[in-house]
């Protein structure tokens, strides 16, 4: 069979999500943010919430998220996305309100906002990309950096006596009464991408149906910050990150 006979609109099984626009993403090659952007765009499209979704963009690598996904966005001050999402959701209770944050935004400068928004049980979905490093500013140590992990500011590896222990904020949030769905996923393999998509969909449904705060942590890679190729980063992530941050549902009140 000729290739041209296969390439027909009726045979299409996968294409770029409709809500992802044509502007080229500024992310480094192989960055996990791109995959998660695709999933967010696909889920919003599948749920038919194109005109009823409000995203809160963070500060960090994903600061330009509003340039890539065609829904309404608000750009928050550093770490303040859950606070802004609280206001957006309380004023528009029927809409999907989600934040898209990295670990520097969510688990470092925005820790107070994150914990209190989750504890208040705000009906928002939080997508939290954890790559264990401050990617945008040049690969410095983040609270989520693993023990012994080399970064620009810990060239001999993170020393727990000096720098403290890695912060597992998702586990912390799972203990709060306000959260309804807390999960950790990754996007390094096709099967993992499908799982992550289901998790994002469930979180978005929880936001629309006002069931409480949902947190979807996605283990990301930072090939530039980790000084590896994208494929090596995925292998490294699977080997080391999953030890400290095991993948799976931490809390789901529906089950």
């Amino acid at each position: 069979m000729d290739i041209q006979d296969i390439i027909k609109p009726e045979n299409k099984v996968y294409s770029s999500p409709r809500l992802l626009n044509d502007s080229t993403m500024h992310y480094c090659p192989g960055c996990s943010h791109g995959v998660v952007h695709k999933l967010v765009a696909e889920v919003i499209d599948e749920m038919g919430l194109e005109h009823n979704a409000i995203g809160i963009a963070p500060v960090g690598c994903a600061v330009f998220a509003y340039k890539y996904i065609d829904v309404d966005w608000i750009e928050a001050a550093h770490g303040r996305a859950p606070a802004l999402a609280t206001a957006a959701k309380r004023l528009n209770p029927d809409r999907l309100v989600f934040t898209y944050q990295g670990d520097g935004d969510f688990a470092a400068i925005g820790t107070a906002e994150s914990i209190h928004a989750a504890n208040r049980g705000e009906n928002i979905a939080i997508i939290f990309i954890n790559n264990g490093i401050y990617g945008m500013t040049g690969g410095q140590m983040a609270p989520t950096t693993l023990e012994g992990m080399k970064t620009a500011t810990t060239p001999y590896g993170r020393n727990v006596e000096l720098n403290g222990y890695p912060l597992d904020i998702t586990k912390l949030l799972a203990q709060l009464d306000g959260t309804c769905y807390v999960t950790r996923q990754s996007v390094h393999k096709p099967a993992a991408v499908r799982q992550a998509k289901k998790a994002i969909r469930r979180a978005f449904e929880n936001s629309v149906n006002r069931r409480g705060c949902s947190v979807v942590e996605i283990l990301g890679t930072c090939s530039s910050g980790w000084k590896m190729t994208p494929h090596q980063s995925n292998l490294w992530m699977e080997e080391h990150m999953k030890e400290k941050y095991p993948v799976g549902d931490l809390k789901n009140i529906e089950e």
């Binding site: 996968y14 770029s16 993403m25 192989g30 996990s32 943010h33 995959v35 393999k189 991408v193």
Partner: peptide
Amino acid sequence: ALVCPDAC
């Protein structure tokens, strides 16, 4: 296509 970060 699923793992492509740039949706190309």
